[in-house]
Design a protein around this nucleic acid. Structure first.
Lengths: 331, 331
DNA sequence: ATGGAAAATGCACACGTGAAAAATATTTCA
DNA sequence: TGAAATATTTTTCACGTGTGCATTTTCCAT
């Protein structure tokens, strides 16, 4: 491996000059710089990141942390996040992926190892981690879950409003017996989506019926189970809002199994707009959650924060979009 | 940040002794070691990985490379891979995720930055990258795509045999007019799955009908399109094998659209066994691809290789499993 | 006690880089 | 032409860690 010292020897200058030349330091005469850059290129010089890290106290690493990699995180969510970040992130940063639930010692999370951290947060339980990062003064952006603390950069989709729009739409189609299959207990998104559901019903002066609130955990299977229990009610709902598409697919399946046709006998609304949503039968009307956009914006903000740690924290909202397809009937 | 020198001062020894004590070097007296370890713990010492890296020429980083993050890589594939790896990987290694297609300069891929590399390979086009890694002498395991070169550690599912089993099963159900919707051109998996399809038909002395070979690219939409063209044939097939589940879902959708019922009028087989496969209507009969198992085994092998670079390379096969559900009818 | 081997520890340096301070070269101005 | 001012480069040191070799301490057999 060749180093700046090797280049210095060839160029007949000191290694410091080489370092400066290669890092765009204005103290170097233009012709010297050009000559050194040429030599460096010819010698195929590649900087040693370990050495750089040691002296600069930078790691050239961005950490992406999910609440959990195994549980409650749908595949498309994780992938869209990674895609979004890669889209914005400079090539000489590398992105490491972690699950908060599998971290043994927070001590290993320190400025030395991460220039910046993105937390794809789903639950309050991440707070311990988030505050550790903050205490360590590592530039931090929390994505996807709205924080009470306005001292932290935060990028989220406005789930609640997204749901309200969807319910408004369904109400405009004449529906009045609304049920919900809720998300995983403890997840902020579950609460928000439920609240949007409730708010919209209240705004339309529709009744909140306790039996129409079914528990779920974001997994496909839980949608199936919850739908079965809803269908077993003496008077089933005319429309069911599922807190994510995975559960909506499970729910749809339960309907097939019981010979209920969608949307004629029962309407269905999902949340997320995963790839498969447009390929269910009928195609699922759902709320598009802009995970990739959130990730992109979050990464942009993180980069700002790394450049200038005093950038004032903001709470940024990214809009959801209602995707009207075929799973809601007019009644 | 506290360093071994700080500990040395407190313990009244040299930093060398501290370094040795903390790294389990046998030259240190047991009681000295115990004392130093105690002090280190009390002082909350955390080693500086940059310095370690510099001196040890290790990075404590494993790179996971996909052919592409954006294209042709399904979400569940990426996620299952990450999960599998995390399951095996030691906590003080971090995992970075990359798309080969977005690497600008291979020069940045060097031993200094990666202790080991896992390539989730889908296409021959990855070879340039793979050989670069090999040339750099970075411990390497290639997953998912079978290589001709037996000099590289390689873990793959036996796609071909998996497909053959599935076609055998379908033949045993009385089918004889078999069609295929192929995977993305250029991907090894596409070729293997197609070959399994062909081999099985030949073994059953069934005809290979050119019109029954439809092109696809692993995306849901391409399954839809391909199925439309198959259904437009004067004499459509009685069963269609789709090279992955995503396309099978697209294909299923095309059937809905044209009022063809599955499996009564047309049978369908997928490949991968994604989460949603059991929730299609009817549930999709498919071939389970053990991505997580491949990743786990591959990671284990990579760790072996990192410990002892002379570990002889192997080609390891992980079995697929036929998941019989409801999309294939007996005729 | 004493020599000598064995065990334990310390010294000095290396890794590749960047930065402050010092040195040298060049330009400017009177 | 010479001093002051400025531009450029070099010297020296630091970052935190591990290692070969020298040094000290310990222990045992004499």
């Amino acid at each position: 491996m060749i180093t700046i010292k090797d280049i210095a020897r060839v160029a007949g200058v000191s290694h410091t000059t080489v370092s400066r030349a290669l890092n765009g330091n204005p103290l170097i005469k233009k012709e010297t710089r050009d000559r050194i850059e040429k030599i460096a290129a010819e010698m195929n010089y590649i900087p040693n990141y370990s050495a750089k890290s040691l002296v600069m106290k930078k790691s050239y690493t961005i950490g992406l942390f999910f609440s959990s990699i195994d549980q409650g995180t749908t595949a498309s969510f994780l992938v869209d996040a990674i895609k979004g970040i890669h889209h914005v992130l400079d090539e000489n940063y590398s992105l490491t992926v972690h699950g908060i639930d599998s971290i043994q010692h927070f001590d290993a999370i320190m400025p030395q190892r991460f220039d910046g951290i993105l937390v794809m947060s789903q639950s309050d339980e991440d707070n311990a981690f988030i505050y550790h990062v903050k205490k360590m003064c590592i530039p931090l952006v929390v994505l996807n879950r709205q924080l009470e603390d306005t001292g932290i950069m935060n990028v989220v989709a406005n789930d609640r409003i997204g749901v309200m729009e969807a319910i408004d739409y369904a109400a405009s189609q004449g529906h009045s017996r609304f049920a919900i299959i809720e998300g995983r207990a403890g997840f902020k998104s579950s609460i928000e989506r439920k609240q949007g559901f409730i708010d919209s019903l209240i705004a339309h002066r529709l009744p909140l019926i306790p039996e129409y609130f079914a528990a779920g955990d974001y997994a496909v299977e839980s949608g199936y189970t919850a739908m079965c229990s809803l269908l077993a009610l003496p008077e089933p709902p005319s429309i069911v809002f599922c807190a994510n598409d995975d559960m909506a697919i499970g729910a749809m399946n339960a309907c097939y199994a019981q010979g209920i046709t969608i949307p004629e006998q029962l309407s269905l609304i999902g949340f997320d707009d995963i790839v498969f949503a447009r390929y269910t039968n009928p195609a699922l009307t759902t709320i598009h959650r802009p995970v990739a956009d959130i990730s992109k914006l979050g990464t942009t903000k993180l980069i700002e924060l790394m450049k200038d740690p005093d950038t004032p924290p903001q709470q940024l909202f990214v809009n959801t979009t209602l995707m009207v397809r075929q799973s809601v009937a007019a009644v």
